[in-house]
């Protein structure tokens, strides 16, 4: 059984204009130790997929009309807030895009990490290595020591002193490291990283990705890396899922998908990457616009923009195996490996 299983997940959000069908068939299965890149353009539902795993999409206005999310066998969509809180911070860690706004500016970073550690330890006392009867002071001291260890692990120099610094005393890249340490302090099995490097400059980006890669390998941590940047996926992901307008259209081993994309959308996405050395004016986009999610096209949602579309595309294609290491949702995709 996979650590995370998302099956045919549908998510609708009520808004002024009606109900937007923002997710309409997300399928994912993440095993321990795997790094999944979840890619797609802005608004395709990749962030909402990540937030749904932790049930952080407020419902109402959102509802899940169809599908299932299972975390370690547990039915997430049926879980209440108290059950979810036991998973958050302890089994599931999350980091987000902008490290400057995701740390609370009014508190020392250590204080924020200690609160997460204490929460995780209430769920599972082994996080701090103390038994459940330990005094509040002992638990706090252990949480602080753990915070220092994690800051060291993510590469914050002089961690024992810096644990008492405020967020504004760290650079952007260092803040993202602090946030990673904070997300990992409860020893989670899954780290959901939503555009973790988008707000950072390129050299810092590479360091953060390398760190995530090491952590996944060392601790058997599964990572769901949400990004619009295929380059990021190519650097560290073992697997990739491509989303378009609320659906996973292609997924599989990163190498296979990126080298020889099977879905016309994945192909177009890869073709639109700017390349060094390419002729001036040779930027390629994808013609057409993203469908209106209040009244999405029936069948394949990419069909209106697809150069290969045929009559059959009016019927939604299922996600089916195409070769050994990949699945694709397209009637026109080559089924042979």
């Amino acid at each position: 059984m996979a650590l995370v299983e998302i099956e045919n997940l549908h998510l609708a959000i009520r808004a002024f204009e009606g109900e937007a069908q923002v997710l309409a068939g997300v399928d994912l299965a993440i095993e321990r130790g795997e790094i999944w890149g979840l890619v797609g353009e802005t608004g395709c539902g990749k962030s909402l997929t990540g937030l749904s795993i932790s049930r952080l999409v407020s419902s109402p206005p959102a509802r899940y009309p169809k599908g299932a999310i299972r975390f370690d066998g547990r039915d997430i969509l049926a879980a209440d807030e108290a059950e979810m809180r036991k998973l958050r911070g302890r089994r599931i860690g999350m980091i987000f895009q902008d490290p400057t706004t995701n740390l609370n500016p009014a508190f020392r970073v250590g204080e924020q990490m200690i609160d997460v550690a204490l929460h995780a330890a209430r769920v599972d006392a082994s996080v701090l290595g103390l038994d459940a009867k330990a005094s509040a002071r002992a638990r706090r001291a252990a949480a602080r020591a753990l915070a220092v260890r994690l800051l060291e692990r993510v590469g914050v120099a002089r961690a024992a002193e810096r644990v008492d610094d405020y967020p504004h005393q760290f650079s952007g890249g260092m803040r993202q490291r602090v946030l990673i340490a904070m997300a990992l302090i409860g020893k989670p099995d899954l780290l959901i990283a939503d555009e973790p490097t988008t707000a950072l400059d390129v050299s810092v980006q590479a360091q953060i990705l390398k760190l995530l890669h090491e952590l996944a390998r060392e601790q058997g941590l599964a990572i769901l890396l949400i990004t619009h940047n295929l380059g990021v996926v190519a650097q560290i992901a073992s697997h990739v899922a491509v989303m378009y307008a609320g659906r996973v259209v292609e997924r599989g081993a990163a190498r296979a998908v990126l080298k020889a994309p099977a879905h016309p959308y994945t192909q177009a996405l890869i073709a639109s990457l700017p390349r060094a050395g390419a002729a001036r004016g040779s930027l390629v986009g994808i013609p057409g616009v993203v469908p209106n999610l209040f009244s999405p096209p029936a069948g394949c949602r990419f069909a209106p923009r697809c150069p290969l579309a045929v009559a059959r595309c009016g019927e939604a294609p299922p996600l089916e195996a195409a070769g050994a290491a990949r699945e694709v949702a397209c009637w026109r995709a080559e089924r042979a490996a």
């Binding site: 932790s54 952080l56 809180r85 036991k86 998973l87 958050r88 911070g89 302890r90 599931i92 860690g93 999350m94 980091i95 987000f96 902008d98 706004t101 995701n102 740390l103 609370n104 500016p105 924020q112 609160d115 997460v116 929460h119 995780a120 769920v123 946030l179 904070m182 997300a183 409860g186 959901i192």
Partner: peptide
């Protein structure tokens, strides 16, 4: 954002 992070970490 820091409220979302705090919520996401339980």
């Amino acid at each position: 954002d820091y409220v979302l992070t705090a919520r996401a970490l339980g």
